[in-house]
């Protein structure tokens, strides 16, 4: 019979399979778009802004954009892991607030700066782990669980401060909000470190492979011997920890503990993840895409401000861009299913 190669024609039924050559071409294009497409969008956007706004292309402005992007980018890094497992985390903005408030309170109480920083990250990790536990062990929908925690964590941030912001102008770790290393703002340095860690986790570790597997096909992952619950718990915990780091930067930048910190940030973070090409259906996406997605949002905001576009038009443009990004994602999936 047929020599067995990976081009052996298959049953036409019901397992319909297109001709390998055609598929390969289709999947190469999809693959290429996954990796490069979003960079192309960023380059076009930068070119556009450079042409329209005369002061856009300057080192100062680039640093400005990077600094303004850092918090959203760090939130989005954690969120990427959760979304890769086919989950969602709406509570990252509230976790940012609680972690930020907690770390300032620790610092004000005289806890050494490194421990206060660690405390903030830990608060975030614990809050995320709680989300993960509900999602993994009680099999509750992530949307509902994190909608709930978004609310109770916000409440917690208020109650820790009796509803009032707490100014801490001599905050020990104010540097990570405002300082810079060799001309590069510290928040940007932190962002780069966070991305390096998350890239390593997703691309080089067993956990990373498991994240993609769980998001791609949860039942197959379970049957393949993956501890699905532990993977889910870890994913939400990482998202919480990243939000904790973002909370530290936020507090350091405003030199205070703010109960309203990070309100609505989850939406920008989700937008960055989706813009970066990660599928909301899970199992597909790259951490560096998310970074580019966050930068696109930052460049867009920055450019619109430089162009003196009124705030409400900025919102309209941002919203439309997000919808286009999601449409691109579903188009990609459609073309893949349709081959």
């Amino acid at each position: 019979m047929n020599p067995i190669t990976d081009t052996t024609p298959d049953n036409p039924l019901p397992d319909t399979k297109p001709e390998p050559a055609a598929v390969r071409r289709g999947s190469v294009i999809a693959h290429w778009w996954d990796r490069v497409g979003i960079f192309l969008v960023l380059l076009i956007l930068i070119a556009l802004m450079a042409a329209l706004a005369p002061n856009f292309l300057s080192v100062d402005n680039a640093i400005n954009v990077a600094r303004s992007v850092s918090i959203n980018a760090i939130l989005a890094a954690g969120l990427t892991v959760v979304i890769l497992t086919a989950g969602i985390d709406l509570s990252v903005g509230s976790i940012l607030a609680v972690a930020g408030v907690g770390s300032v309170l620790l610092a004000v109480d005289g806890v050494p700066t490194p421990l206060a920083l660690l405390g903030g990250i830990l608060i975030g990790a614990v809050a995320g782990a709680l989300n993960g536990a509900f999602v993994a062990w009680l099999a509750l929908p992530a949307f509902i669980v994190t909608l709930g925690s978004m609310t109770y964590l916000r409440g917690l941030a208020y109650s820790l401060l009796d509803g009032q912001p707490l100014v801490a102008s001599d905050l020990g770790f104010r540097g990570i909000g405002n300082g810079s290393v060799a001309g590069i703002p510290q928040p940007v340095v932190v962002m780069v470190v966070v991305y390096a860690i998350f890239w390593f986790l997703l691309e080089r570790t067993r956990f990373g492979r498991h994240v993609y597997a769980v998001g791609g096909n949860m039942e197959a992952a379970r049957l393949a011997g993956i501890n699905v619950k532990r993977v889910l718990l870890s994913a939400y915990m990482l998202a919480g920890a990243a939000a904790g780091v973002a909370g530290l930067i936020f507090s350091a930048r405003v030199l205070s503990a703010q109960p309203t910190a990070g309100q609505g940030y989850e939406l920008d973070a989700i937008a960055a993840v989706v813009l970066g090409g990660t599928s909301l259906a899970g199992g597909r996406g790259r951490i560096l895409g998310t970074l580019v997605g966050a930068v696109i949002i930052g460049v867009l905001s920055n450019g619109l401000i430089l162009l003196d576009v009124p705030f409400f038009y900025q919102l309209i443009i941002k919203g439309v861009v997000i919808i286009i990004a999601i449409a691109l994602d579903s188009l990609k999936r459609f073309s893949r299913a349709g081959t």
């Binding site: 597997a213 791609g216 096909n217 992952a221 049957l223 993956i226």
Partner: peptide
């Protein structure tokens, strides 16, 4: 439904 990770490579599927 129960075995393949369609988005992942042949290598990842075999090694999982």
């Amino acid at each position: 439904d129960q075995a393949l990770f369609l988005d992942l490579s042949v290598k990842d599927n075999i090694g999982m």
